[in-house]
């Protein structure tokens, strides 16, 4: 469609520019606040130009927030969740698309429906399961009146407790499924003629073809799991060893209860630290990310 209306063009561009600035202002303020010392940052009004204590603040924030340990925790959790999601989503989509069995569509819709049940909705039962992972099985056994007692398997305060409940993903399964459906059937048949079994086809043909897809999924899921706040807050009581980065932020802002003014410069510096990994991942993977979402690679 070709349209020539300079006024409309001007208007839309101004609007875009305005939204862009509006979007960036908070980041600018975070950055400015992180670069001043305690006294300057608490002036009213706060200066809008960066000061000179940026690295100093960063160092203090890193130290005070125990970020050496906490960032590692976050990396382990976000990495684990991302990896788990990529693998499990690929496997379930492979099963749904390439195998014909009776409950195929039912399973697909079951997975799909979980989109409507995010962690926040099912947080109490999920917590109960995390507290004793064998509990659901124990209930089933009890239902049949068999007198077996399973041992307790506590996932609280552990990496598996942080990771496993977040691993299942309907979005990922759906993304893979849509991609697998575009792979010509003849490719699977050619592989069959070449003697490759299902697993081989999956590993050597399907997965290499879905590289862009995986990158897209990895980007979304890494950012998503890095930013998880509620779940870690709930399962982690051993804050010394298992706190994640997002949890730690909150501790750097002493509330009014303590009777002292909040140390905004340190808190903002910590914010920048926590912000960095997801931004980096997005920048590194964004080229793949866009391609994966468009699924147009030949």
């Amino acid at each position: 469609m070709i349209e020539r209306s300079p006024l409309l063009d001007l208007f839309t561009h101004l609007l875009l520019l305005a939204s862009f600035v509006a979007l960036l202002i908070p980041f600018w303020i975070v950055f400015v606040a992180a670069s001043h010392d305690f006294h300057t940052v608490n002036q009213v009004p706060m200066p809008l130009w960066p000061g000179s204590s940026f690295f100093e603040n960063m160092a203090v924030a890193w130290e005070r927030g125990n970020f050496g340990r906490v960032m590692l925790n976050s990396f382990i959790v976000a990495g684990g969740v991302t990896l788990g999601k990529i693998v499990i989503a690929a496997l379930s989509a492979f099963s749904i698309v390439y195998f014909k069995y009776r409950l195929r569509m039912v399973l697909f819709w079951l997975i799909f429906i979980t989109l409507m049940l995010p962690l926040e909705v099912r947080i109490v039962p999920t917590y109960a399961v995390a507290a004793d992972a064998l509990r659901p099985f124990q209930s089933m056994i009890d239902l049949f009146g068999i007198g077996i007692n399973l041992p307790e398997w506590n996932l609280l305060n552990s990496y598996s407790g942080l990771i496993l409940p977040l691993v299942a993903t309907a979005t990922g399964t759906f993304l893979y499924r849509q991609f697998f459906l575009t792979v010509p059937d003849e490719l699977a048949e050619a592989a069959k003629m070449d003697g490759a079994g299902a697993i081989r086809f999956f590993l050597e043909i399907l997965l290499p073809l879905s590289r862009t897809n995986m990158a897209a999924l990895a980007t979304i899921m890494f950012v998503w799991s890095w930013n998880q706040y509620l779940w870690p807050l709930l399962v982690v009581t051993d804050q010394q060893n298992f706190a994640t980065a997002t949890m730690q932020l909150q501790k750097l802002i002493p509330g009014p209860l303590f009777g002292e003014p909040p140390v905004w410069n340190i808190a903002m510096a910590a914010n920048l630290i926590v912000l960095a990994p997801p931004v980096l991942v997005t920048i590194v993977l964004q080229r793949w990310f866009v391609r994966g979402l468009m699924v147009t690679e030949k």
């Binding site: 010509p184 003849e186 490719l187 050619a190 592989a191 043909i205 290499p208 073809l209 030949k298």
Partner: peptide
């Protein structure tokens, strides 16, 4: 096969 079905990667 008709459309060759070569492995693209």
């Amino acid at each position: 096969f008709q459309n060759y079905a070569l492995y693209p990667h």
